[in-house]
Design a protein around this nucleic acid. Sequence first.
DNA 1: AATTGCAACGCAAACGTTTGCGCCATAAGC
DNA 2: GCTTATGGCGCAAACGTTTGCGTTGCAATT
Lengths: 328, 328
Amino acid sequence: MLGVSVSTVGRALADRPEISDAMKARVRSLAEQHGYVAHSAARSMRTGHSTLIGLIVPDVRNDFYGAAAMALAKCCEDAGYQMVLAATRDDPDSELKQVRSLVEARAAGMVIALSPSPRRETLALVRRLRSTELIRDVAGGDTPWFGIDDHRGIETATLHLLDGGHRRIGYVGGQEALSTGRDRHAGFAAAFARRGLDLPADLVRTGPPDARFAEKAMAELWSSAHRPTAVVAAGAGLTVGVLEAIGRLGIDVPAELSAVGFGDAPWFRWWGPGLTTMALPVYELAYACGGHLLRQIERPAPAADEKPPRYRAMHSPTLIVRGSTANV
Amino acid sequence: MLGVSVSTVGRALADRPEISDAMKARVRSLAEQHGYVAHSAARSMRTGHSTLIGLIVPDVRNDFYGAAAMALAKCCEDAGYQMVLAATRDDPDSELKQVRSLVEARAAGMVIALSPSPRRETLALVRRLRSTELIRDVAGGDTPWFGIDDHRGIETATLHLLDGGHRRIGYVGGQEALSTGRDRHAGFAAAFARRGLDLPADLVRTGPPDARFAEKAMAELWSSAHRPTAVVAAGAGLTVGVLEAIGRLGIDVPAELSAVGFGDAPWFRWWGPGLTTMALPVYELAYACGGHLLRQIERPAPAADEKPPRYRAMHSPTLIVRGSTANV
DNA sequence: AATTGCAACGCAAACGTTTGCGCCATAAGC
DNA sequence: GCTTATGGCGCAAACGTTTGCGTTGCAATT
C-alpha cells in the first residue's frame, strides 16, 4: 500500500536502524490504522523458536500451584514471554498431551510439576525442551529442579511436636513414589531419631496426596485403639483432608489433638484456633525457577559434549506456630 | 528417508484415506523412531488458525478464577485445544499485552474477565477474536457474556439478614465502574425496597474489589457512631478483607455482628463459626462459557451482515447458611 | 573527476505444513 | 483392445515472517 517492499515494512516495525525515521513513521501509522498485528506463527516458523513458556501442574486450585502460576506469569511477562498453563489433574495421559503440544509449539521452555507416574514418552519430550522441574523430583537425568527442603520441613514440624511433649504423633503423607513423599517421610523419622525416640510406626499413613485419602487416613488414626495426641499432615491437599476429618469427627483442637500442616494457605490462620504449619516460600521458589529457566533460554545453546552439573535448588519452609498445637 | 514425498508423509500422519495402510504403518514407525513431532506454527500458518484458547483473568489465586481455569482447561483438552492462561493483576497494560499476543498467535478464541478500565485498544483486539466475557460485563457490543446474577445474589443475602431482624446492615462492595459492583449494589438496595425499609446509606462502602480496601472499609463501619449489626461482603476478595478486619478488631461473630460473604471458598465453613455465604456455580459457569465458545469456534463464520442477538447467560448463586449469621 | 563510504531500501530464499491438481499404474467395463 | 474409473502417490504453491546480500543514489574523500 505504501509502494514499499515487505522487508522494509518488517524492518520498520522491528525498529531497525537501516530504515529512515520518516519511513518508520509512515509504516507505523498505516499499520496502526489498519489494525495490523504480526503473525507469531510465521515468525516462529522462520526463527525456529517461539516465546511460549509452559507451566504444567496438577491443579491450579491448589494454592501452591496457584501462587507458582502467578510468579511464573510475572517472570514471563517481564521477559517478554507468554505463559501457557496446563492442568493435568495428575492424569498421565492428559500430561502427555499437554507436554506434546508444547513441543509441537516449539516452546522456549517449560516448568513442570510431573505426575507421580508419568509416561516414558512424557519424560523424553520434557528433556527435549529447556525444562525445569518444580517441587516433584521425578524426571531424573539433568533437568534442573526447584523444590522444597521436604526433609527439613517435616523434621522441623515434628520436632516442634516432640519438644511439646508429644510422643504418639500421627503422620499423613503422600505415597513413596513421589520424591516429596519419600523425603517428608524420612524427615518425620529423622525427628524421632534426633531425639532418640522410637517412631510410632502404627500411626504412619501414606497414599495419594489428596484430601479424600487424608480424611480417611485421619479417621483411621482416630479410631485406633491407641490414639495419637498430635498429627502431621505432610502436604497441602492432605492438610485439607485432615482438617475435614477433624471437623467431621468433632475433635477438639488442640485439647484432644495437636495438628500441624504443610504449606500455608491464607485461611489457615482463621481455621479454628489457627493452624500451626510449615510455610513454603512458594512465590520465591517459582520466581527463582522461572528466572533460572529464562537464563537458560537466553544463554546460547550449550555444547553437546558439555555436561553441566545438575542444578538443584532447595528452599526451606519456616515453622509458623498458631493455636492448633499445645504441649501435653 | 523412505523415498516418498512430504505430502505422502503428511497425509499418512493425518490418517487420510488416500494413503495405503502399508505406507501409513511405515511412515508412523519411522516417525516414532526418530521422535518426530509436528511443527504447530507451520500448520497454523498454512491453515490460518491455531488451536489455542486464551483465558485472561486478574488472578489465578482467587478461588473463583482458579476454578474457572480448571473448568476451561477441561473443556479445551476434551475438544483438542490448548489453554493459554494469562494473569493481568488487573493491570490494563499487562492485559493489553496478553490480549495482543493472543491475537498475534491467531488464537481460536478467548475467555476474558476484563479489568475495570481496559484500554480501548484492548477491547478492539478482543472483538477481533471469538471471545466470551466471564463475570465482568464491560466490553459492551456483541461479546457473549457469562456471569452471575449479582443482583439476585446480593438481594437474597440481604433478605436473609433483613428477615433475621437486622436493619443496620453494612455493605462492602466493588466500585460502580464494574458491572458486578453496580448490580450487587442495586441488589442490596432492592432487598430493602422489597421489604419497604429504608436503606442505611451511611453503611455503604464501595471501592476496589480487594482485601485491602475491604479491611479498611469494615474497620470504618465498626468505628462509626451507630454500628451495623450485620455486614454483607459483596465479592470474594472483599470477603477476605472483611474477615481480616473482624479478626483484627476481635469482633464476636455472630453475637456482635452477623456476616455474609459472596462466593464460596472451601475454607469458609471452617472459618470461626462457619461463614454464611452465597455460593457461586463457578465451575458450571466456566464450563458453560467454554462450551459456548467452542461451539462458536466450530460453527462456520457468521455472515458479516448477520447480527446475532447478544448472548447473556446468568447463573444464580445459592445461599448457604452457616454460623456467622444470627437473628437479632 | 574518480573513488569510496554509507544510508536506505529491494530481492529472494527459507522455515514446515497443507492441499488442489496432476500423474501413473492397475482394475473394471464395453 | 480401447476407454473409463479409481487407488496411491508426487508436484508445487501458499501461508507471513525474517535476513543475507545486492542495488541504488548521494555525499564525502582523495
